[in-house]
Design a protein around this nucleic acid. Structure first.
Length: 268
DNA sequence: GTTCTCGGCCG
DNA sequence: CGGCCGAGAAC
């Protein structure tokens, strides 16, 4: 039979693709496509494949039937259902919500040439840099379209950025800039200054400092700080108010309904 | 038990 | 119409 497994260049080394023609029944003539991992595990759909590969390969433009990357298929970011995310939470990380990683760094074993030394080389002494992970230049682009939402899946109002912040690079929307800065603050304990080299504005593809978000260098003024302090103060007041209201509500509830159940809790 | 195969649902 | 997966058939 037509049972040959062919190499699939769009996937990491060792992955095979197989196409089986249906030979009877109402759907005779139709074909099914399967993939085999290097270890021999069979995969019969794209969701199954991406569940297994997790973040190691970006299957966004991968066409399961042909086995090729189809750049035209730049599909919109589908908003996943919360229930799906919950069921994913104890498996591989969710493709859409995990922060982007370098796509070319495959976890799969591949032959490499190790160069231990070269007469003309100076040994790098900058250990700080050596311990950093490589990053894609404009990886923040992949944050586009991600939104925070509350338990009822209402999209939360986004934050307003101060006037002084201007983005750099191929995507200059405020939403992406906000995500980029938030991620920078989240992932690094170093100060976030923006791109300090003015060359980065002219040609970010060359001069970008990848440890800083895609925005022009900015300065934080005393007024910015005062404004922020005010916001924090107000947030604390409303939190205090909410906690007080909650305490009162619970007190009223338990006096009226002594056998009331404990509220549901999430287990992870 | 596992693997193969086609039906059929659903988007 | 095609992707995806359930489930019966085959082994």
């Amino acid at each position: 039979m037509e049972r040959k497994r062919t190499d699939c260049p769009a996937l990491p080394p060792g992955w095979k693709k197989e196409e089986v023609i249906r030979k009877s029944g109402l759907s005779a003539g139709k074909s099914d496509v399967y993939y085999y991992s290097p270890s021999g595990k069979k995969f019969r759909s794209k969701p199954q494949l991406s569940r297994y590969l997790g973040n190691t390969v970006d299957l966004g433009s991968f066409d399961f039937r042909t086995g090729k990357m189809m750049p035209s298929k730049m599909q919109k970011n589908k908003q996943r259902l919360r229930s799906e995310n919950l069921s994913l939470s104890k498996g591989k990380p969710d493709l859409n919500t995990a922060l982007p990683i370098r796509q070319t760094a495959s976890i799969f074993k591949q032959p490499v040439t190790k160069v231990v030394n070269h007469p003309n080389n100076k040994v790098k002494t900058d250990l700080q840099r050596a311990s950093e992970q490589p990053r894609q230049l404009f990886w923040e682009k992949r944050l586009k379209g991600l939104r925070s939402s509350d338990v009822s899946e209402e999209v939360l109002r986004t934050m307003d950025l101060p006037k002084g912040l201007q983005s750099i690079g191929p995507d200059s929307s405020d939403a992406t800039l906000l995500s980029a800065i938030a991620s920078a603050l989240h992932m690094s304990s170093a100060p976030i200054t923006g791109q300090t080299s003015s060359a980065a504005e002219k040609n970010p593809a060359i001069w970008l400092n990848t440890s800083q978000p895609l925005c022009k260098a900015f300065t934080v003024t005393d007024e910015d700080i005062r404004e922020q302090e005010l916001k924090v103060h107000q947030a604390r007041l409303s939190l205090e108010e909410a906690l007080m209201a909650d305490t009162l509500a619970r007190a009223a509830e338990s006096s009226r309904d002594p056998d009331g159940r404990a509220p549901c809790t999430l287990h992870t």
